[in-house]
Amino acid sequence: MKAIIVCSGGLDSVTLAYKVAVEAEITSLVSFNYGQRHDKELNYAALCAKDLNVPHHVVDISHVGAQLTGSALTDDIDVPDGHYAEDSMKVTVVPNRNAIMLTIAYGMAASQNADTVAIAVHGGDHFIYPDCRPDFIEQFAKMQKMAMDGYADVSIYAPFLHGTKGDIVTAGTAINVPYKNTWSCYKGGDKHCGRCGTCVERAEAFYDAGVTDPTDYADSDFWQNAVKQRAEAEA
């Protein structure tokens, strides 16, 4: 396998990069500037590429992102606090984001003579992000096979698709992924806020995996209350 990794600089995609580095060959890491409210995570993607000694490309699609309005990740809309399982988190959806990024990554893979595009979507994303679900990944792969018929044979690799974020932390810890060098928070402050959906999910993942969380949260207690409220709602 020769793979190009879609890497945001977050916990999931950095784990994926280190996993592929153990299993196969990485041609490059690709990150996207889609006009997100901060680009802090891109610095962590660059750090990952440097540590793995592979090229890192940042593709600027901010002009495209400017047309994908209505998301708290791109517009002047407050990022909600709470767990991803809450309906309020749907405001963090950027329409068709993964489909757009994957399409570009497939083209880059063909150009780099890579045979695989790797992406770190996982089971915890399924509730609010349609382009992270198994059906989407399966159908997208079929579409791309048709789009590149006779030119390139590129597959998609999504090893975390049916797992949890806790599973990702477990797998990453086994191969010494430096989680301190990853960024998840949607708010982009000096520290992880500890309150937004991705911070709550991050903290919960380390807890579920039984691994010490190296993250410095501005609010280190909020996630526990958010998880408790979710459990009570599901009871």
Rank of each mutant, 00 (worst) to 15 (best):
I5V: 10
I5P: 05
V6F: 00
C7G: 03
C7T: 07
G9L: 03
G10M: 03
L11D: 01
D12F: 08
V14W: 01
T15P: 06
A21N: 02
S28R: 15
S28K: 14
V30P: 01
D39G: 15
L42K: 08
L42H: 03
L42Y: 03
N43A: 13
N43K: 13
N43Y: 08
A45L: 02
A46V: 07
C48N: 01
L52P: 04
V64C: 06
V64Y: 03
A66K: 15
Q67R: 15
Q67N: 14
S71E: 00
L73G: 05
D75K: 08
D75P: 08
D78A: 15
H83D: 10
E86F: 01
T92A: 14
R97V: 00
N98D: 07
I100P: 06
I100M: 09
M101D: 02
T103P: 09
A105Q: 08
M108Y: 10
A109M: 13
A109W: 12
S111V: 13
N113I: 08
A114Y: 09
A118I: 11
A118F: 10
H122A: 06
H122V: 07
H126S: 11
I128P: 05
D131M: 11
C132Q: 08
C132N: 10
R133F: 03
D135M: 12
A141M: 12
M143L: 14
M146W: 10
M146Q: 12
D149I: 12
D149G: 09
G150T: 10
D153Q: 13
Y157L: 09
A158R: 04
F160G: 04
H162T: 13
G163Q: 12
T164D: 00
K165Y: 04
G166D: 05
G166N: 04
G172L: 00
T173R: 13
T173L: 07
A174E: 09
N176K: 15
N176R: 13
N176I: 09
P178H: 02
N181Q: 14
N181K: 14
Y186V: 03
K187G: 04
G188T: 05
G189F: 03
K191E: 06
G194T: 01
R195K: 10
G197D: 02
E201C: 07
R202H: 08
A203V: 10
E204A: 11
A205R: 03
G210L: 07
V211L: 10
P214E: 07
D216W: 08
Y217C: 08
D219A: 08
F222S: 05
W223S: 05
Q224M: 14
K228L: 13
Q229S: 12
R230Q: 15
A231G: 11
A231T: 11
A233E: 13
A233D: 12
